[in-house]
């Protein structure tokens, strides 16, 4: 009996994780669902005007959702192929000494504070874009996507590199012994073998970009419009919440709408996360 007590305590403490996750879902829904008293679900999702400070407030989240999707898609388009290239470099191409150096550096960059990148986007990249391309404002979709890319590349390439390195060396040997080049071996044997983990890593990168706040808050321009080009400013859900939560009365429709935006974000990231976990698990079962 005396020996079972610590086990029970450990188990009890670990259940905190479950409670936190349940509480997050519960509080988001509790605070967010009341927005439907002020606006219909259809208008909330597809209304294209976001004037939360008007009286009565106009709460159409369509531009915000499109903004989130646009910045996520643009940054993924830039970052994912680049990450795969970096992963191939570290795992297949780099000389050993370079690999030993680059691996910890990639991991370290995964901890790069996003506020710093947001700051760089605002005070360095934006003026530069503005001057070089003669834009109205350098704070736009392109700026935020590039910086989000810088944020996600280390995460995705680290995970993808681990997946590539985990492919057994004797498969590479077999391919080389048949007269394959390094590129052919990588493309036809190594990458396909690691594909589930690479996909799962890519999804985690997409998830990270989707949920990132400070970079888009500072560098994306913050206009609640539907972007028509990569030089247009956007206002994704995350930055809307961050920018407006401080200025809205607790319990108002605007307050509830911001929580509802949180629900949308959470469900999207949760979906991607679970899909990624499922692919990873599926890949392991096959091998």
């Amino acid at each position: 009996m005396k020996d079972r007590l610590p086990g029970i305590v450990v188990k009890g403490m670990s259940s905190a994780g479950i409670f936190i996750m349940i509480f997050i879902l519960y509080f988001l829904f509790r605070e967010g669902i009341p927005v439907l008293k002020a606006v219909t679900l259809k208008d909330l999702f597809f209304g294209d005007l976001w004037y939360p400070a008007e009286n009565p407030p106009v709460l159409g989240m369509f531009p915000l959702i499109v903004g989130t999707l646009a910045v996520t898609a643009a940054s993924s388009l830039l970052a994912l192929p680049f990450s795969l290239l970096i992963a191939v470099f570290v795992s297949e191409v780099a000389p050993r000494s370079v690999r030993e150096l680059l691996k910890p550096v990639l991991e370290l960059l995964g901890f790069f504070p996003s506020i710093v990148l947001g700051f760089i986007g605002m005070v360095v990249l934006a003026p530069w874009l503005q001057e070089t391309f003669d834009m109205l404002s350098g704070l736009n979709l392109l700026n935020a996507s590039v910086l989000l890319g810088v944020l996600t590349v280390p995460i995705v390439s680290s995970l993808a590199e681990e997946a590539l390195s985990a492919v057994p060396g004797d498969l590479r040997d077999a391919s080389y012994a048949l007269g394959a080049t390094r590129f052919e071996t990588t493309r036809k044997v190594v990458v396909p073998s690691a594909l589930p983990s690479i996909l799962s890593a890519s999804l985690l990168g997409v998830m990270r970009a989707l949920g990132e706040t400070m970079v888009v808050l500072m560098a994306a321009g913050g206009a609640a419009i539907i972007p028509l080009s990569i030089f247009d400013p956007v206002r994704p859900l995350t930055s809307t919440i961050a920018a407006e939560m401080g200025e809205t009365p607790v319990g108002s429709p605007h307050y509830a709408a911001l929580f509802f935006g949180g629900i949308v974000l959470l469900l999207m990231t949760l979906g991607i996360n679970l899909l990624s976990a499922w692919i990873e698990k599926k890949g392991k079962l096959v091998q």
């Binding site: 057994p168 004797d170 498969l171 040997d173 077999a174 391919s175 012994a177 044997v189 396909p192 073998s193 096959v286 091998q287």
Partner: peptide, 8 residues
Amino acid sequence: FQKPNPFP
């Protein structure tokens, strides 16, 4: 090779 190593 020593160990059979068919590609997946």
